[in-house]
Design a protein around this nucleic acid. Sequence first.
DNA 1: CTGAAAGCGCTTACAG
DNA 2: CTGAAAGCGCTTACAG
Lengths: 318, 318
Amino acid sequence: MSVTIKELARRLNVSPATVSLALNGDCRVAGETSAKIKALADELDYVPNNFGRGLQSRKSRLAGYLAGSVTGSFFDLIMQGIGETAAAADYGLLTGITRASEKIDAQVKIFIEKNVDGIILSSTYSAHIEQFEKVERRKIPMVFCSTQDSGGHPFVITDNFKGGRLAAGHLISLGHRQLACCCIEKDRLAGNLDAVHQHNLPEPVLFFDENDLPAILKASPSITGITAYSDTQAIKIKHVVESLGLRIPEDISIVGFDDMWFSELQELRFTTIAQPKKEIGQAAMQMLLELINGKNITSRFMEPELVVRKSTAPPLIR
Amino acid sequence: MSVTIKELARRLNVSPATVSLALNGDCRVAGETSAKIKALADELDYVPNNFGRGLQSRKSRLAGYLAGSVTGSFFDLIMQGIGETAAAADYGLLTGITRASEKIDAQVKIFIEKNVDGIILSSTYSAHIEQFEKVERRKIPMVFCSTQDSGGHPFVITDNFKGGRLAAGHLISLGHRQLACCCIEKDRLAGNLDAVHQHNLPEPVLFFDENDLPAILKASPSITGITAYSDTQAIKIKHVVESLGLRIPEDISIVGFDDMWFSELQELRFTTIAQPKKEIGQAAMQMLLELINGKNITSRFMEPELVVRKSTAPPLIR
DNA sequence: CTGAAAGCGCTTACAG
DNA sequence: CTGAAAGCGCTTACAG
């Protein structure tokens, strides 16, 4: 068994209460006593028992993180940001990486059982109401990370409008006049449109699925620039475009989103809009901690950044 | 506050002890009483308090997972396997994804503080002795996942010897006679060599870093096949080879390792040795649970599998 | 400045 | 088959 407060108290001929107070830095304990206690705690490698402490304080110093998947996405870096910020605050991070809705339920159940002080969500939860109702009922603080929530919870997210404006603005500054824009994310699309309108250019053609692009490019041969939903989608768009015999960037310029590690591979070299992934994670955990500590917080928008590589160029004059 | 055992007991006019027994399925409680208790617990959405329970049982039903990084690696899938198996056993998974050694220390400290019942390691720990000494002293079970340990802890790992044999065997069966083999992982290399020797072929040229390949390929122009340490390294090798004006697979065949998601992109199409990533994670957690429950376990080797794509072909006759 | 006491929610012998 | 009691390790009023 490991060392307990009682044991420390016995060895030093003080009461357990004094030990507890001293270890928690309470100023009511005399400096000398306190120093003696801390020294022995160090020497015996005392680690406070989280159960005893939690039973009393009703705080677990545990946070839960739920994400759909981390493979080929940027949630791996977000999770690192969350985890490191959590660790710095002496918080443990319980992670549930899963997409199947019944497994999400199981994860949230575990979060509740383990008494997490708060939850960070990187997936929407509309589909999994049952367990989240319990979360709400228990008033467990929640922060949305890289997703927004309609239910009024605070969130951290990249300023997608600005990102969209950056993407279309870049294409326009290169001389592109007719764009095709992915409409999966409405704020990014709004940003795209804002840049287009500001320059009095023709309405972009919208698409949801990259597989619709062959028909679109055929119908509108004046399209020379495409804004993608993500770098992952940009890969698929690249394949579709190339399968039509068109070259990137000579015939078609593509701007991705996210700035994933693979985007700088020489096979891809995507111009893209970088999201500050790790910072998003750090901010989310920071906000959750503040929420846990009863502070009022407001949602945050993070700055996107244009990264120019080789998938964009001025359009060929035809 | 949420519902407690006491509250249930009060409402049903039984003792807290009876409620506890019933909820834990103890056969000493009369069927009728037990049913009544369970029904009310369900109705009031009773969740046992993990602190009270843990204080008593000395079990947290928490496991820790430590990995260096998850970006562009396959540890994301391993983590999913671990997490899902943990959840199925009602275990929470505390993750520490970090590479800096002082942060590893911080993570392990948190694992200890949160009273994890066991730890799964996907990184070697020789460099971070201090905290792990504490883990050993507390006799917290550890399982190594996708790494082996010299200290005698159980591990799960792909059968790297077999994987190496598969990789070189594939090249040989295509007609390659002179190979270059990455020597980062000694078992994979041993497998490479085993296949080569079995066919009485010339000794492969060994390399550690892909940047040594230009010199090697120049010195030994008979090399037509390369076994890489990983798919990630295969990307770098591809770039190096192509920068020498050589084509893949016409001039040089490359076999990767891991079978990452990106390996099937049409820009890469790597022939590779697949590791059963999720199964490795599941096995690791399974083993940890058995260890926690006092069972004896033995290390496990998982089966690798050859996946043939477009980075390998018969060598050109020159 | 320090100690004795109660209590957080649970489990587990021990009576009956 | 059920209840009363003790105790896990900690914190926190309350005395003194």
